[in-house]
Simulated assay, not measured.
Amino acid sequence: MDIERFKHQHVEILDGIASLREFAHAGIKEHAYEIARAVVALSTVVKLHLAIEDRILYPALQNGPDARLAEMGRAYQDDMKGIANAYIAFSRRWTAAAIIAEKAEQFRAEANVVLKTLHGRMQKENTEFYPAIEAM
């Protein structure tokens, strides 16, 4: 199975997270506009990635001949639901620069939790899930 598209999207997602981290470190209030734009851009990639995984990757694995990969895919899909819901709620809440600037510390606290979780998931897929798919 060719998963290059998924891997490329992971690079985009990880780059987006890194960009948000850089803006936050440089000053949330001072970079609220850039942060809002980065949240919107990241959300576009994340939502596309989730949709393609749900419509193509997971069904292909679950209907494939490898029972171990089918189960791994189910587990990854189930685990991602909570992560996706948390990220989508975060991204909806933080798209306006004025709100980000006004509630900078709340943004920082939520971003630290949600983006750390998303980052960890991308790394886990890159080191465990995708290699298992490519090995089949």
Rank of each mutant, 00 (worst) to 15 (best):
M1R: 09
I3V: 12
F6N: 03
V11G: 04
E12I: 07
I13H: 01
D15P: 00
D15I: 11
I17R: 02
A18V: 11
R21A: 12
R21V: 04
H25Q: 09
H25L: 06
Y33F: 11
E34D: 14
A36K: 01
V39W: 08
V39C: 03
V40L: 15
L42K: 03
S43M: 07
T44K: 07
V45A: 13
V45H: 01
V45L: 01
V46C: 08
L48E: 07
L48W: 15
H49C: 02
L50C: 10
I52W: 05
I52Y: 14
L57P: 02
Y58S: 07
A60F: 09
L61A: 00
P65C: 14
D66V: 04
A67S: 10
R68K: 04
G73I: 02
M80Q: 10
K81R: 11
I83H: 14
I83K: 01
N85Y: 09
N85V: 14
A86M: 13
A86S: 10
Y87C: 07
Y87N: 09
A89S: 06
F90D: 15
R92G: 12
T95R: 15
T95C: 11
A96S: 10
I99Y: 14
R108A: 15
A109I: 01
A111M: 12
N112Y: 12
K116C: 12
K116P: 11
L118M: 02
R121S: 08
M122G: 05
T127Y: 13
F129P: 08
Y130A: 08
P131M: 10
E134C: 09
A135E: 03
